[in-house]
Design a protein around this nucleic acid. Structure first.
Length: 643
RNA sequence: GCUAUUGUAGCUCAGGGGUAGAGCACUUCCUUGGUAAGGAAGAGGUCAUGAGUUCAAAUCUCAUCAAUAGCUCCA
């Protein structure tokens, strides 16, 4: 007998060889019907895998991320089975599940796959799924595994198997399709009720551009048709929120071929919005004891040789700028920290002065590969809301905490309610990849984790994701339609203080090395504005939006009154415009709605004689009439409450 | 950077070896109106750039540039 503990802390004594499915059935038939896989001592296994030792068991269903993953992984197999039946010549690469669905890389030989083929494959998949095929696991010796796929002529699988250890190779069979696979899989294809193949793309075998390009088919499946429909609606919604589209519509930013790839041009409305964001953060930082500094856009090449970045990135960067003088070279700055280090070095520092916090909206230039550029989220010139904190080792924790506070304050002000943090620490297996003493690393890593705990953050720890110079914490927000975006980052750095020989005089009258904390709550203004656009679908919070109020006179007769109202609003620094066009009110409203102007003020005879205004809220409709005083009060309160 | 697709008016897009099209936006005129498109007229394009094929190229071919998607990358 073995002891299996369940998430409710109960312990069941069962016979060796009992499966997760058996346990599910003993709880309820309904649960058993929904079980996709199970988590046994931290590894996800088939629901039909016999349990042979004590351990903790969690049954996974569609509600669990791992359950979804199992389902999508199995769906990839189902797709491969369909492909094999329709195109017997096809050879298979890899077919994993991904965040939303799955893909399979397939070599179709000379055949090009089109949208029509996807429909065909989809149909076949539905047919096969309804056959309620079960997934059968077999463990296979390496020799035999190699033989199977050599006989089949599938060189990709052969290559994959060659990289595996004997004894860890398993096959899964589903219908007449057998695949090399670690598993786990769902109990049967009957769980797959709704299928959509989404797109086709080329992908190099093993991500290597020198090797053959395979056809990658992306798809997603659901246990209910309704969920698929909802997902497709979501995809449409995402398309509508694309910041490149909205940025154009609202005249926020543009790109020009003549200026160059990946170099955004901020239009007046976008620049105003960005400026408000910057001013907001400047105020927050001022309150938190940051000091502004300003540094130039270029720096001598030596500066980056000293920082170590030239060795690491120099080859893949913009070429150095030369001068008429022999041997003189400058680089466009790819980051602000070396400049800030030099500012720190201008005079000796006492331990009493620390922490010193230098903040700068510093524009940096990085030569991203052309294929990587994407709207405002990936550009070659961007402005970081950067700051560097120079502190004593004993202050790291406290400073880190203070930075987190700023980040949270900003997220709240901008209505990012859902976010998680990722703490990236060293990979203990490869200590040679990191610089600095073990002691410092341990201290910093522990400090970050403690701070995360104390700040009540929802965090995950990723081993091996740390920068070579120190551990970091990244903030990932979920936007209004559930997509994840990485925004702010806080990094602890022992490297640059060393390289720049930064010092402070301690209480003991000896020289000590400060610790640097790099931090950027927005990350970059470009990326942040892009995310903000997609999060809000262009309906920015009132305090940020370029045009807060549009005054719509019913006819020319009321232009004068409109101007009177405009003047009143301007006195309170409310950003308002008048629509002077000789259009009907319905038209003016429609245009203001499309341009996402939060408040529309309609003024006509009624308003002029009563000295009031009619208010309409974007997306909500008519709000009735009120006095201008009340309007101003309403708007200023809305702005103040947001910050 | 690699592969594929695309590039026609400010925007969204149709067309296609023989004088360039629509809707919206824009300008002017009419209209002076009450909560998501009033009417008419007009103006606007070397069809991304360069070369080639052809009697003739926006259209076909090649190259370049850019955009889009995926891959690889991201201090």
């Amino acid at each position: 007998m073995i002891n299996i503990s369940l998430p409710d802390k109960s312990i069941r004594q069962v016979e060796v060889g009992t499966t997760a499915m058996d346990i599910a059935k003993s709880i309820s038939e309904g649960l058993a019907r929904n079980v996709l896989s199970a988590k046994f001592n931290d590894s996800v296994i088939d629901a039909f895998r016999p349990l042979t030792e004590d351990g903790s068991l969690q049954l996974l269903t569609w509600k669990d991320d791992e359950g979804k993953a199992t389902m999508w992984h199995s769906s990839a197999h189902l797709m491969a089975e369909a492909v094999q039946q329709l195109y017997p010549e096809a050879k298979f690469g890899i077919g994993p599940n991904i965040e939303n669905g799955f893909y399979y890389d397939i070599d179709f030989g000379d055949k090009t796959i089109t949208q029509d083929d996807l429909t065909k494959i989809e149909k076949k998949m539905k047919e096969l799924a309804s056959q309620k095929q079960i997934f059968v696991r077999t463990e296979v010796p390496k020799v035999e595994a190699l033989k199977t796929f050599k006989d089949k002529g599938d060189e990709y699988k052969v290559e994959l198997i060659e990289g595996l250890q004997d004894g860890e190779i398993s096959f899964y069979q589903c219908g007449d399709f057998t695949d090399l696979c670690r598993g786990p899989h769902i109990p049967s294809t009957s769980h797959i009720k709704a299928i959509k193949l989404l797109s086709i793309a080329g992908a190099y075998w093993r991500g290597d551009e020198k090797r053959k390009q395979l056809t990658r088919i992306y798809g997603i499946t659901f246990p209910k048709k309704k969920e698929l429909d909802a997902y497709l609606v979501l995809l449409e919604e995402a398309k509508k929120r694309d910041h490149r589209k909205i940025g154009k519509e609202l005249e926020l930013f543009t790109f020009s071929q003549r200026v160059g790839q990946g170099l955004p041009l901020w239009l007046p409305k976008g620049a105003m919005l960005r400026e408000r964001l910057e001013n907001y953060l400047k105020q927050v930082q001022k309150d938190a004891g940051y000091e502004p500094v300003i540094t130039p856009h270029i720096g001598a090449k030596e500066l980056y040789v000293t920082s170590g970045h030239y060795a690491k990135y120099g080859e893949d960067s913009f070429r150095p700028i030369t001068t008429p003088n022999e041997g003189e070279e400058f680089l466009l700055k790819p980051m602000n920290c070396p400049h800030h280090c030099e500012i720190y070095r201008t005079k000796p520092h006492s331990y009493k002065e620390l922490p010193i916090r230098y903040a700068e909206f510093g524009t940096v230039y990085r030569y991203e590969q052309s294929g990587e550029l994407h709207g405002l989220t990936r550009v070659r010139g961007f402005t970081q809301d950067d700051a560097h904190i120079f502190c004593r080792p004993d202050q790291v924790k406290e400073e880190f905490k203070a930075v987190i506070k700023i980040v949270l304050q900003i997220f709240t002000a901008l209505d990012f309610k859902n976010f998680i943090t990722q703490i990236s620490i060293r990979d203990p297996k490869t200590p040679e990849k990191y610089i600095g003493t073990d002691e410092n690393w341990e201290k910093a890593e522990n400090a970050i984790i403690e701070v995360a705990e104390e700040s009540g953050l929802d965090y995950i720890v990723e081993e091996g994701e740390a920068a070579f110079y120190g551990p970091k914490m990244d903030f990932m927000v979920r936007d209004a339609i559930g997509r994840k975006w990485q925004l702010g980052t806080i990094q602890v750095d022992y490297n640059l203080p060393e390289r720049f020989e930064l010092e402070y005089i301690g209480k003991d009258n000896k020289k000590h090395r400060p610790v640097m904390i790099h931090r950027a709550p927005f990350g970059s203004m470009e990326r942040f504005v892009a995310v903000l656009i997609e999060h809000t679908a262009g309906k920015f919070p009132l305090w940020l939006t370029p045009e807060q109020v549009r005054i719509l006179p019913i006819s020319e007769k009321y232009h004068e009154y409109a101007e009177k109202v405009l003047l009143l609003l301007k006195n309170y620094e409310i950003r308002a415009e008048i629509d002077y066009r000789s259009e009907k009110t319905g038209r003016k409203i429609r245009d203001a709605e499309i341009q996402r102007v939060p408040y529309m003020i309609i003024v006509g005879e009624k308003e002029e004689t009563s000295g009031k205004v009619s208010v309409r809220r974007q997306g909500e409709g008519d709000k009735g009439s009120m006095s201008t005083d009340n309007l101003i009060k309403m708007i200023t309160e809305e702005v103040q409450n947001a910050l």
